[in-house]
């Protein structure tokens, strides 16, 4: 069984509790002065990686947990958070504010990173909550030619580098099995990410953080998609509350939906 070298891509996004607002020019959402934090799905990936090590779930052990983020200088904050949660080191790929990478560019960047870091497991959030693309993990698996298990709700390790991944699907759970190296994307019920404790925040400051550019990975980051317009969803019309299931059924009947 090979020791795990886990790569965890993390993204700095507008905090999930903040209500995003479309900018005046309708080209995107307001980001200036808005609270940012780590994409919640990426927190799950970091947490799971750290738990695999702490609970010694992988027979070969965990040799390295490396977090990587492409974004403005501020993205280093979330790399530090990930390291405070337990990741060993971080790689920051400087991308200017507003020059966001598309999923394919991110996948290409990660492919290069996987090769450089000799990773054999990549834990990605299934999607980032800013653009909700849900593509990067799948594209990365395609580019690398590795097996992928998406939307994991449970990950277990067996003999001979076999990894079993359970995911929740409509009406039940689906279990898939693959051999390392592989790609796993994480879903909400996988775990509950820890809070970074203050002593660990201080320790994280001493962990190595490499600073790189897209060129270091042979990536240009040119855009293939053009955003035409961003608008707010139409305001919701006020609904009504029903007491119980019977109330709901009679309401639906009343509205002619049943």
């Amino acid at each position: 069984m090979s020791a795990l070298r886990i790569l965890v891509p993390v993204k700095r996004v507008i905090d999930y509790a903040v209500k995003p607002r479309v900018n005046k020019a309708q080209t995107g959402v307001e980001t200036a002065g808005v609270k940012h934090s780590m994409n919640p799905f990426d927190e799950l990936s970091v947490e799971e990686s750290v738990r695999i090590r702490e609970k010694k779930r992988a027979p070969g052990g965990v040799e390295d947990i490396c977090v990587i983020s492409a974004g403005p200088t501020k993205a280093q904050d979330i790399l530090r958070t990930a390291m405070a949660m337990g990741a060993d080191r971080g790689i920051h790929v400087e991308v200017k504010e507003g020059e966001d990478l598309e999923p394919l560019s991110v996948a290409k960047l990660l492919k290069a990173a996987v090769e450089q870091q000799k990773s054999n497991l990549v834990f990605l959030g299934k999607q980032s909550i800013d653009d909700d693309a849900n593509q990067t993990g799948q594209m990365l698996a395609g580019l690398l030619g590795w097996p992928q298990a998406t939307q994991a709700s449970e990950v277990t390790f067996g003999e001979g580098d076999m990894v079993t991944v359970t995911k929740e699907v409509d009406g039940g759970v689906e279990t898939v099995k693959a051999k390392l190296p592989m790609i796993i994307t994480t879903d909400l019920r996988l775990n509950e990410p820890r809070y970074a404790s203050l002593p660990n925040i201080m320790k994280a400051k001493k962990k190595p953080l490499e600073k790189k550019t897209l060129a270091d990975f042979g990536i240009t980051g040119e855009k293939r998609l053009k955003t035409l317009k961003v608008t707010e969803p139409p305001p919701r019309k006020g609904g009504g509350k029903v007491e119980d299931v019977d109330g709901l059924i009679s309401k639906l009947k009343e509205l002619g939906a049943l």
């Binding site: 809070y195 404790s197 203050l198 002593p199 660990n200 925040i201 201080m202 320790k203």
Partner: peptide, 19 residues
């Protein structure tokens, strides 16, 4: 205690955050 909020200024060598 778990979060280290009770040992903000206690030096790391004594198990605090050393902030």
């Amino acid at each position: 205690f778990e979060q280290g909020i009770m040992g903000v200024e206690i030096p790391e060598e004594y198990g605090g955050a050393g902030m």
